[in-house]
Design a binder for these strands. Sequence first.
DNA 1: GTGCCTGTTACCTC
DNA 2: AGAGGTAACAGGCA
Length: 274
Amino acid sequence: MPELPEVETVVQDLIASGLIGKTLINAEVHWLKTIADLKKEEFCQRIKGQHIRSINRRAKFLVFSLSKDTLIFHLRMTGRLRIANPTLPHVKEERLVLNLSSGEQLRFEDTRKFGRCYLVASPHLILDKLGPEPLDEKLTPELFFQRLSTHSRKLKSLLLDQAFLAGLGNIYVDEALWEAKLHPLQTSNTLTEKESHILLDAIRRVLQRGLESQGTTLGNGRTNFYRLDGSKGKNISSLKVFRRTGQACPRCQRVIKKIIVAQRGTHFCPNCQR
DNA sequence: GTGCCTGTTACCTC
DNA sequence: AGAGGTAACAGGCA
């Protein structure tokens, strides 16, 4: 669910909610594996009294710089953050609650329990293996082409690989490949330099669109992406192929197909994407 | 109820 | 190196 635009939306929502500068009073851990790296007692002890210096995004990670340590969330499939008054009813999907000096709570809800929260002295071990940020100017078209050329992999799996490029997930990869008119099974080192530039542009366009729409919320269930205040992202109306199997391609009207690549549902137009 | 699907990632084997 | 399988989970849906 949460890919780059969704995580960035949540980061911006957290900042807008005035979280920066607040102090973490204590933590309530309701699911141990959520904080897999640390024992519950150590996590609670260590986080106590630290204040939030800044909130950033790297790939699909939310990164809270605290006064001493770094607090990192990965939402995986169904993780959600919510700021709540303690009197707000709790839900059973709540895995972690951080009590703030303001009297509010930062609640982490996660239906499928895949999400993770790390409290570390240094973020490097977690963040340094990630590839470049797709929207970073330092990722030039030349560098992107060079990186694509050094792998012989299906475009779909390569673009999902966070060590190759950070922040894309199933939705935006399918959308970017459609936008670039490239087949998900095409091998990465067969792209011409021109095609690779078109692909980078396409990736940036679909991400930018996702950001402007504050993310993609696909349905109505609680396992979907929601913003901090519970509202939906509006990007679904921009999707051209994702979960549109059997419908007409908006470009050529041919029927959109679905195949499985790298164990992931992959949507594309067999006419536009050769 | 049954069985299959799902937006992520780590880890394993070939 | 890269591909494929499995596992971690629980809900949605036909």
